[in-house]
Write a protein that binds this DNA or RNA. Structure first.
Lengths: 352, 352
DNA sequence: TCATCGATCGATCAAATGATCGGACAGGAA
DNA sequence: TTCCTGTCCGATCATTTGATCGATCGATGA
């Protein structure tokens, strides 16, 4: 899955390295006849490149046309690409997305990164695309016929993803919710993502009978020691991949709006410069889990548990940028599905 | 040598056909879900194209990344190219030349066409490039070790070409001058192209002991019946290729300036709408040899003789455009070495 | 409901491409 | 002059790419 290195067109990110190679090549022989020779070679390279990329000739044809051997043509083409003579442009709105996706992928060592297009003006324009892209990735797992365990976080994005999924019969699969589906008032969320997913596939469902954040440290301990909780946690540990959302930490934060944390607690998190949360675990700008009074009451499985799973995050919108960036910096994610706006924020923040 | 058809990038000329194919595909299913489906496919195609051409991924990598089979990726890439999503630009002054060269090559069914860059302001800027390009082609023949017969016309371009040639030891080759090296006053040109070429290679030289245009029909007949003349003509017939210049027919014409034809004769040619000449044979705009009083006195070998030889013409400059175009239209040439200015004239005249 | 048509998809093979290696050649130092 | 060193060039092999063909799936109409 990991790219084995630049193969054909070395633009964008890679160009930098090649430019350096070039530097060593060209600056050393400064004398004019050498430069002339180089220019001549470049001319030939340009011809070869044109014949190959625009004219669509094969290297054999080019070879006989330019009067060199085929390997010679190959060297000319390589030269032309190194010197940046060949410019490829993909004429499609997705091209930008691909550029950013690739940059993020490489920067944070992800296994995949999908960036869906979004209109910067229309705030929620990308929500549906995000859901579809997520469903696409999700169904990649579900397609398999061998039994599979997947875990899901909460959030609008995750929810929309499973709703965008088309029905598929996979009774052998198991789905676990990573985040308690019980609100602080004790009401259970009947429409948890796992429920929908299990309905659509006919698979088994495992729901965590707990709130995200317990009322007290003691309550958390009590919950963690429950047999049922431990059994479900055990299933979650076997999951191959986890699809989760990324939460902001500010007054619009889901954690706060849904009353999982109080205003005082929010203030505390903000004062500790939390910028996002993963499964209820608050992260600072560097992506480290912040140790504070709230952390000690979070009932979610510890993030370390997901080191050997494919932790896939879905989140979009420029507002979520800082939170997504934190998750990336922490190295928690294996996959990211986001939108153009958030991606642009990340690219800018990291100077990519 | 002939192109076997579009292979990879179908731009420029070929794009037209592909656009038609596309038309049939896309217009028939006008219903919106079909269009949507097509759009989705195009999105995928854009992604695939980006990953392949910009990202430099291999098709296998793209396949696993997009979750389709490798042939699927191939179809996506083909689609992307058909739809014109992939734009390739060669960032080099020669790119224009290559475009024109290719257009001329295809339009007139040449075996090769070299277009060298030229500054439209500096009139003679391309003369040297032309010579070098010609020498390049010439040495392609000379490199061969088997005995070879080549014939040469006259003119500054041909002369410059042989001078640009580097020395090479080929005593087995034979070189024939196609145009008399005797001026009307009887003086022989000691520095004929053939002389230089034979000097540089050590090959045999055959010079036509005649002026281009004889003084009268009788003189021509006398000359053609000479044994020496016939012997040399016989050698010329065995030539594999002929490198010749292309002459204008106007007051700047070499034929006229060197007094091979008189002012009256020039007027006659112009009144018959001659626009150029090949080895002294005047051509009209369609490239047909004009039958007139001068034609009957031209001592050069008939152009028909070169139908099964590689007749290669060297000529540049916008002024020579009409003459070159005539030679091309007549279908006399197998190869053309010209410059940007002349090429542009040809492209514009033929609406390419 | 079934048969047929069409389209799409993936396995297979041929062609084209990229990379490595050994050898030749030129330029420079002993 | 001879040897050495670095560079360039072309033969060969592995990989990648393109194209064809049969199979499968879904749609359409009887």
């Amino acid at each position: 899955m990991v790219s084995v290195g630049p193969r054909r067109f070395e633009h964008d990110v890679v160009n930098f390295r090649l430019a350096c190679d070039d530097f060593q090549h060209r600056v050393q022989p400064e004398r004019s006849d050498h430069v002339d020779k180089f220019e001549l070679k470049l001319d030939q390279a340009a011809r070869a490149a044109w014949l190959s990329y625009v004219g669509g000739r094969t290297q054999d044809e080019i070879a006989s046309q330019l009067g060199v051997s085929r390997p010679g043509v190959q060297r000319l083409l390589a030269l032309a690409r190194q010197e940046g003579l060949v410019k490829v442009h993909i004429d499609h709105p997705l091209a930008n997305c691909m550029v950013m996706s690739d940059a993020i992928l490489k920067r944070f060592g992800l296994e995949f990164c999908d960036v869906v297009p979004a209109d910067p003006d229309a705030a929620d324009s990308s929500a549906h695309y995000l859901a579809v892209a997520g469903a696409e990735r999700l169904s990649r797992y579900l397609d398999r016929s061998e039994p599979l365990t997947l875990s899901l976080g909460t959030g609008r994005s995750v929810r929309a993803m499973v709703e965008a999924l088309s029905r598929i019969d996979r009774p052998q699969h198991r789905f676990v919710s990573l985040v308690g589906n019980v609100a602080r008032d004790g009401s259970a969320n009947r429409y948890d993502g796992v429920m929908v997913l299990a309905d659509k596939t006919g698979g088994e469902r495992f729901l965590l009978p707990a709130p995200v954040v317990a009322g007290s440290v003691e309550e958390k301990q009590a919950m963690l020691s429950q047999h049922l909780f431990q059994a479900i946690a055990e299933v979650a540990k076997q999951a191959e991949a986890a699809f989760i959302g990324i939460g902001r930490i500010d007054r619009q934060a889901t954690l706060f709006q849904d009353h999982f944390i109080s205003e005082t607690e929010l203030e505390e998190l903000l004062s500790l410069s939390a910028v996002g949360e993963l499964l209820g675990w608050p992260l600072n700008q560097a992506g480290e889990v912040i140790d504070c009074s709230i952390t000690r009451r979070v009932t979610s499985l510890p993030l370390e548990m997901f080191r050997d799973q494919s932790l896939v995050a879905l989140a979009g919108g420029r507002d979520k940028g800082p939170a997504i960036l934190a998750a990336l910096r922490g190295g928690w994610l294996k996959g990211l599905i986001t939108d153009e706006n958030a991606a642009r924020f990340i690219i800018e923040s990291e100077n990519l």
